[in-house]
C-alpha cells in the first residue's frame, strides 16, 4: 500500500518528467518537498519495482515495427513456469504472461511478438514452438488499435 504522500508523487510523475533543466526540483516545488527527497523516492520506487523503468516509452509503429501479434499457447500447468521463462528469453517477444484459462479457452501463456511484417511474426512463433515443443498455438494479429493510453493512477 502506498502512503498518501507516495500517491501524490505518483500523480505528479505520471504527468511526465518536466522538460526543464532540473525536473525533480520542479516536482519537489509543487509537492513542498526537496529535490533530494524526490530523487531518493524515485530511486526507492525503482528498487521496489513500483516504477518499472525510468525512461522514454516510444511508439513502436513510428520506428518501423508495424506487425504486432498476440500468440496464445495451450500450455499445461506443470510446464507453465519453464515454458514462460523460455518464451520470455526471445528478443522478439515483448510481453509474456501466464493467464488463467477459461471454459472453451484452453490458452494459458500469452506472448506479444513484434516484427516488421506479419510473416516475421509467424516465423518467430514457429521458431518458439519448435524450440519449446508446444503445438496448438494461435496467432491473433491486431487489425486495429482502438485505444492505447496510460492509466492515470489515483485520480479523485
Amino acid at each position: 500500500m502506498l502512503s498518501e504522500q507516495e500517491k501524490e508523487l505518483v500523480r505528479e510523475l505520471q504527468k511526465g518528467l518536466p522538460l526543464v533543466s532540473r525536473p525533480f526540483l520542479d516536482i519537489a516545488d509543487r509537492l513542498g518537498l526537496s529535490e533530494e527527497e524526490i530523487i531518493a523516492k524515485v530511486k526507492d520506487f525503482l528498487t521496489k519495482g513500483v516504477i518499472r523503468r525510468f525512461g522514454a516509452v516510444v511508439k513502436h509503429q513510428d520506428v518501423g515495427y508495424v506487425a504486432n501479434a498476440m500468440v496464445v499457447w495451450p500450455v499445461t500447468e506443470e510446464r507453465i513456469m519453464e515454458a514462460g521463462r523460455a518464451m520470455a528469453s526471445f528478443p522478439e517477444v515483448s510481453h509474456c504472461y501466464n493467464r488463467l484459462s477459461a471454459p472453451g479457452w484452453p490458452y494459458t501463456l500469452y506472448t506479444v511478438i513484434h516484427g516488421k511484417e506479419e510473416q516475421d511474426c509467424r516465423s518467430i512463433a514457429e521458431k518458439i514452438a519448435s524450440s519449446i515443443g508446444i503445438t496448438g498455438y494461435r496467432i491473433l494479429f491486431s487489425t486495429a488499435e482502438l485505444k492505447k493510453s496510460s492509466v492515470e493512477y489515483f485520480l479523485e
Binding site: 502506498l2 505518483v10 510523475l13 505520471q14 511526465g16 518528467l17 522538460l19 525536473p23 524515485v42 520506487f45 521496489k48 519495482g49 513500483v50 516504477i51 518499472r52 523503468r53 525510468f54 525512461g55 522514454a56 516509452v57 516510444v58 511508439k59 513510428d62 520506428v63 496510460s150 492509466v151 493512477y153
Partner: peptide, 14 residues
C-alpha cells in the same frame, strides 16, 4: 514518437 517520458509504473505494485 515518445509516448511517455519518465516513470513507467508497475500497476500491480502501485
Amino acid at each position: 514518437v515518445i509516448r511517455r517520458l519518465g516513470a513507467v509504473f508497475d500497476s500491480r505494485r502501485v
